[in-house]
Each structure stands twice: as structure tokens, then as C-alpha cells.
């Protein structure tokens, strides 16, 4: 038996994983959902042909979207996760006792039930009484929120699928309004390496940069992402991710992690030159090379 699952990173590059068996495949109202069992990555969940997470590397992602803002913001009580139907982000958040509410807004009920069935460890996040699941479109939910959250995490990954609306100016603007005056938004910033992803990367930064007074980008190495390289956005009304970063306070918590460290926190914001250039061009601090 030789079955391979391939994810097309671009038209000319694919990431392939040898699959032991397919555990699930169904079309939900929003997307096609597949679950595979693999030797290297364990179980993987695939939405519309793209790996969303695998048992082997999901910790990187979940830790990076939670610990980074939590080590900066001194007092997080109310958190909103947009997407997040797998429960992984919620699970890491529940490590923080001061958090009072975690709202998970996920429109796709099937995605939640598949996560619960095949990834019970990850979906444990949903068992905490502070977590509430809301089955609704993210944009629709946000329209009714004003000054409500300390932290918003956009856990949707695909700017071209049914979550397209979560990568738009109106989404970031709605997040801004929904946050308290010292609120932070963390979001998926995609992968900047391949040409076809670069345009989306640029436009995301341009939109967020025009919405929030502080807008920085940080990175992580995630094997199942295109080019193994993934970026996150840190948009904030008040706190700077490095200036207001408090490693002593965070270390005192004694949380167990596998990826995040306070050293890595600082390193994650130190970007390669070509990424820095892309960002600065969108901030208007630099002109594009081709326009020089």
C-alpha cells in the first residue's frame, strides 16, 4: 500500500505526506473536510485540500497565537476566537486562570464534531466551562460587538475559501471596534515565500496597518505549512509586542510549553530582510524595488 496525500503549495510545488488510511471525508455546508492517519504527522485534518493541522505540529501554531499576546497584555479577561473549531487554541488559553470568557465563533458545526471525534485531546479545550461555542459567521458575530474583548484571535487560515471575509478591511475594522481600548488582535498572516501568496500577505498587512496603531508581524516554523514557514500578525491598540513584553511575569506562571519560550518571543519578531522589505513597502516606508 502506497497512498500519498499531496497539498499543492503552488501550481508547481507540492507537499506530500504518506498516508496510512483515510478516516473521514465529507462535504459540509462550508467546505470539504478530510481526516487522514499518517506515519510522520499522526492524524491530520484537511479542509478543501489544505492541511489545517496535524497531531505532530499543531502545538507550534496554538502556542504562538496564545502565549505571544498573553505575555504582552497584562490583564486578559475576555477572549474571542474566530474559527477555532478544533478547540486547540481554546485549550492553550484555558491554561491562564485570569481569563474569564473564551468565545469560539465557528460557523461549521461539522468541523467541530469531526475535531471532537478524531482529535479528542485537542478538542478538550471545549470542556472548560469558560469556553462557549457560537455557531455563526465571524463577520456577522462581530458586527454586534463593541468594546467587548481584550484579545481576538483569528484562527481562520485560508484567505481564499469560505473564510475569505475574515481577511478583509471590514473584518479588521470590526475587530478594532470590538476590542477594548487596550485590546490586541492576533491573526493568520499566511506564508510570504511563494509569489502567489505574497500578494495576499501584502494586502493583509496594508489593511491591518491602516486600522491599528501598532501592527507587527512574527514568524514560526510549521512543517505542514507552505514552505514550512508561517507568519502571524500582532495588531494592537496600545501594547507593543516587544516594548510591553514582560518575560519575568510570564515565566513566573511556570507554564509548560513545547515551542514557545520568552527568548523565542523576541526572536519571532526578528524577520528576514525580504519579509521586512515587503512589510515596509506596504507601510509606505519604502518603495517597491520594481518601482524604483
Amino acid at each position: 500500500m502506497d497512498i500519498w496525500f499531496s497539498q499543492l503549495d503552488t501550481e508547481n510545488v507540492k507537499t506530500s505526506v504518506r498516508v496510512d488510511k483515510q478516516l473521514f471525508s465529507k462535504e459540509s455546508e462550508y467546505q470539504r473536510i478530510d481526516v487522514f492517519e499518517s506515519k510522520e504527522f499522526g492524524k491530520m485534518i484537511v479542509l478543501d485540500g489544505e492541511i489545517i493541522f496535524s497531531e505532530a505540529d499543531e502545538f507550534i501554531y496554538n502556542e504562538m497565537v496564545v502565549h505571544v499576546p498573553m505575555a504582552v497584555h497584562p490583564n486578559v479577561k475576555d477572549v474571542l476566537i474566530i474559527g477555532g473549531g478544533d478547540g486547540g487554541v481554546a485549550k492553550v488559553l484555558t491554561m491562564y486562570p485570569e481569563i474569564e470568557h473564551i468565545d469560539v465563533v465557528e460557523p461549521d458545526e461539522m468541523f467541530i464534531s469531526v475535531s471532537k471525534e478524531f482529535f479528542p485531546e485537542t478538542a478538550k479545550g471545549f470542556d472548560d466551562p469558560r469556553v462557549e461555542i457560537i455557531n455563526m459567521d465571524g463577520l456577522r458575530y462581530l458586527r454586534r460587538c463593541v468594546d467587548k474583548y481584550d484579545l481576538i484571535i483569528n484562527d481562520s487560515t485560508d484567505p481564499f475559501g469560505h473564510t475569505e471575509g475574515l481577511f478583509t478591511k471590514e473584518f479588521y475594522g470590526n475587530c478594532f471596534r470590538s476590542l477594548h481600548e487596550d485590546g490586541i488582535m492576533v491573526y493568520q498572516h499566511g506564508s510570504p515565500f511563494y509569489d502567489e501568496d505574497e500578494a495576499a500577505f501584502r494586502s493583509m498587512h496594508r489593511k491591518v496597518y491602516s486600522c491599528f496603531p501598532i501592527s507587527r508581524v512574527y514568524q514560526a516554523s510549521i512543517p505542514t505549512c507552505p514552505a514550512g514557514y508561517w507568519m502571524f500578525g500582532f495588531a494592537s491598540k496600545k501594547y507593543h509586542p516587544l516594548i510591553d513584553f514582560n518575560p519575568i511575569r510570564w515565566k513566573a506562571r511556570g507554564l509548560k510549553t513545547w515551542y514557545y519560550t520568552t527568548n523565542l518571543h523576541q526572536g519571532a519578531f526578528m524577520l528576514p530582510k525580504y519579509v521586512e522589505d515587503l512589510l515596509e513597502e506596504e507601510e509606505g516606508k519604502k518603495t517597491r524595488a520594481s518601482e524604483d
Partner: peptide, 19 residues
């Protein structure tokens, strides 16, 4: 049309009013 596009339109109108 799809519902998610309708949400985008409504979301944008909301943001236009705010900004």
C-alpha cells in the same frame, strides 16, 4: 451569490459608517 459574500457586504457597510 453566497451567504459569506452577503456578510462581507454588510460588514463593509458597517465599517464604512464607523470609519
Amino acid at each position: 451569490d453566497r451567504m459569506q459574500d452577503i456578510e462581507r457586504l454588510v460588514g463593509a457597510l458597517e465599517d464604512i459608517k464607523r470609519v
